[in-house]
Every structure is written in structure tokens, then in C-alpha cells.
Amino acid sequence: MITVGIDAGAKNIKITFLKDGEVIATGISPSGFDQNAASEALMNETLAKVGLTHSDVDVICSTGAGRKVVPGAKHVLTEVSAMARGSLFLRPDVRTVIDVGAEEGRAIRCNEAGKVEDFAVNEKCAAGSGAFTEAMARALEVSLEELGKLSLTSSASVPMNAQCAVFAESEVISLLHASTPKQDIAKAIHDAIASRIMSMCRRVGINPAIMLVGGVARNVGFVQSLRTAMEEEVFVPDNPEFVGSLGAALIAADREVETATA
């Protein structure tokens, strides 16, 4: 059985092909202006990559902010269920999933069966999402990747007063004018976003093991700051941005099995 999970995020669309419980292909492309067309194109591209056609796919399941406009999706899932399912597949002892995407952040607490017990979402405000680090990287005139690496070389703790991404941008510029080393500013940025994510986690309650997923988990500076704030090990899977699409593909497979045995 081949199932496909599509995670139509605010910035990127991610796709995972699952064959009998094994990932056989993944793909990512910018969401662009027409998310519908972008997911169609990504689907065809990934099919070609593994030498399959549309008819080989048993079922498509969508998730993410643009989940309702994914063509051909039989099931439409919230990010919370998809992220939880994907994370527990990768590491069965995970009880807390932290997902930080381009435009939102969420903390999910689940039980040993992978059932979601509680979650908190932070959206509609760029502070606490990838949009925050992106805006700060622009202000510092470094790439996102550099921002993360720079942060690791600092041990200073410079407080950031601004919470809002717009105001924080000006603060970063004043810090630069005051000749604050770039690496210390980078660390301040990651400490700030980590503390926001932390407070969300405290609201749902943190149980180990903790897994961090979503595109922002690629940012090594943020991961470091979050580990320090959490005072616990935070696991980051190899492909953190694909956990949502993986979860969607897994749930699609689960549901096919349920239907078949019902």
C-alpha cells in the first residue's frame, strides 16, 4: 500500500510517500502564490522521482495551514494529530512534541498510545514562529543558517526587550549600532524565541522525551537555546520539516487498514 502525506505549510509544501510503513520518497517546494498548483506540481515531481504514477497511490492525506486546498486529499488532518503521529513513529517514547513552523508554533502533549492529551498553539503573531528568526536574520544581514551557527559561538546573554518582530528588528539594529557582537545578538534572538516556546510548553505540561519538529528545528542556534531553557534533552529528527507529512501519510495508512478490517 502506498500512502501520501502532504503538509501544505505557510512557506513550504512538504510531501512524504509511504510504502508499507517505509518512507520511499520526500519532496519540498515553496508554497508560492498558488498553493493548489504548487502541491500538484510537487506531487507529480515526486511521483516521477520514484517512478510511480497517480494510480499507484492508494490514498492522499493533507495537513498544514493550506490543507483544505490540497487536490485529491481523501483525509484532511490538523497539524496537531499529524505532528504527534509522525513524532511517535520516529521515537516511540516521545510525550511532548514542539513544532515550530514558518508562521506558527505549537506544543503538544501526548500519551504512550500517541493520543493527543493537550496542546497549545501560537499563531497570528510572528513572535514565536520562524517569521521572527527570518526577520531578525534580515536585520542582521546574515542567512538563517549563519544566524544559527553564529549563535553557537556566543556565551553572552544580552536581553531582548521587544517581543514583537517589528520592534525586535529595530532593537537588533540599535544593538548593532551599539557595537554588540553579532553572535551575541544572534543568541539573544534565539533565547527570546526559545523562552516564548518554553512558556507554551509549560502551559501544556512537559513530559520527556521531548521532540522538536518543523522547519525551525533546522536552526542549530534555536535548538541550543531551547535545550538550555528546557533543562532537558530535546531530540531533533533528521528531517524535522517532514514530520507533519510523514504523520499524515501514516494516519492515511492507519485509516486504510481500519477500513479494510472493519
Binding site: 502564490f33 497570528k124 503573531c125 510572528a126 517569521a131 521572527f132 526577520a135 518582530a165 517589528v166
Partner: peptide, 17 residues
Amino acid sequence: SSTCVVFAKSEASQLLR
């Protein structure tokens, strides 16, 4: 529709397009 200035700005860019 977005309250956040960062998101409203992307929304406005889309409207211009």
C-alpha cells in the same frame, strides 16, 4: 485579516499581486 504587522505585510503583498 492578519493582525500581526509581519503577516499583514505578506497579505498586502499578495493583494498587490
